[in-house]
Design a protein around this nucleic acid. Structure first.
Lengths: 219, 219
DNA sequence: AGGTGTATGTCGCAT
DNA sequence: ATGCGACGTACACCT
């Protein structure tokens, strides 16, 4: 990891064009060839950046970064204030918990949390427009397709609509109902879902976890 | 901008939970209170981060970052290799060129570039499933909904279809035609649009810009 | 390599 | 603040 603090300007030309006027900023050059120009605000997004792989050409007052797609970032160094390098460890240590996959596994274990009497048939049921998160049967034996999102938005309703459209054509499945399940279902997604006869349900992740923890003790 | 290179571990608890095992990484502390932990790969995304505003509590071997939403990042410092600070300039210098907003403003000024006799009624016309980029009337006085994209893909057709579906129900608007406008309209988007009776049009951004520059000289 | 779906997305702009 | 759409989205995973 090489860190350059410099008064610099920059031009990016690629998917769009941008110019960055002269100011003191941090330039990060990572071991994999990534380059990022950071200002003193905004943790996530650099002012300009180039993802690996890149070819970096270093001249006395310029850094020219080019990638195979033909995008180019040209950094002009007007005054270098610091230029230091440190070897960092190769990364392997990040684990996440609480993403959509976790929701899916929990609901697969407790489909009745969505609707009384619901039974799981298959997780990741394949259609030719993509996999449905959960295929279930309700208490009457009718098919129910469940689309799971961390946050339920219009996209999720569209996705589920495409699945339902395909599944309705399968005589083994039709009629199929759809349910959008998410920790939060946004208002516009509710409106769209309802207008299409699709159900929606907000999931209490903590409660579901409680169920999971409690279950083994019951037997 | 404070830069700490340290052998560290971290725990994030917020929208989800994550743990980061011990390794040498860069910790960025920005002037606005943002914090990011960067590994030596991936220009864009830190391993962990906290966006402003934050409260940062510094102890001898720990940094605890808390935001008003209750999210928390706890960084344990096992060995500090470097800890330096630099004052950076306040940022003001980034300009972009060629994005959707430009297209929208230009087409709002020159709706007739889309179709002869087209007049603008409203930009960002609101429906309950989101705003339509341009609401226009054609030479016969019928409503035309225009969805603008930099690159026209299937998503744009889906979006416009949703708007049209809602707008058709409004007696003040119906019948409504749809037009997808983009600098490039991809083949699949053309096919889907046509199959739904939606028009599409490729926009010459340079020509539109010329129009804009030329216009004042005409009067 | 290209397409699809997720994201602690972030960011800007609207109500 | 919340809602919503765009983004040089990035990124992982699949065919």
């Amino acid at each position: 990891m090489r860190l350059i603090v410099a008064r610099c300007s920059a031009i990016y030309e690629g998917r769009l064009a941008s110019t960055l006027t002269e100011a003191v900023r941090l330039i990060m050059l990572k071991a994999d060839g990534c380059v990022a120009i950071h200002a003193d605000s905004g943790a996530y997004k650099p002012m300009n950046w180039m993802n690996a792989p890149n070819v970096i050409s270093e001249e006395p007052t310029r850094l020219v970064v080019t990638n195979p797609k033909g995008e180019q970032l040209t950094i002009t160094l007007h005054e270098v204030i610091a230029d230091v390098s440190y070897p960092l460890d190769v990364e392997r240590g990040l684990t996440l918990d609480g993403v959509e996959r976790d929701l899916q596994l929990l609901l697969a274990e407790h489909p009745d949390h969505l609707e009384d009497g619901l039974r799981l048939v298959q997780r990741e049921f394949r259609t030719d427009v993509g996999p449905v998160d959960l295929l279930c049967r309700d208490r009457d034996g009718n098919a129910v397709a469940v689309e799971i999102k961390r946050i339920g938005e219009i996209d999720g309703v569209e996705q589920l609509t495409r699945y339902l459209d395909r599944m309705e054509r399968d005589p083994m499945l039709t009629p199929v109902r759809g349910v959008l399940a998410a920790t939060i279902v946004k208002p516009q997604a509710r409106v769209l879902a309802e207008s299409r006869g699709i159900g929606w349900r907000e999931i209490d992740l903590a409660y579901l976890r409680g169920q999971k923890d409690a279950q083994p003790r019951l037997f």
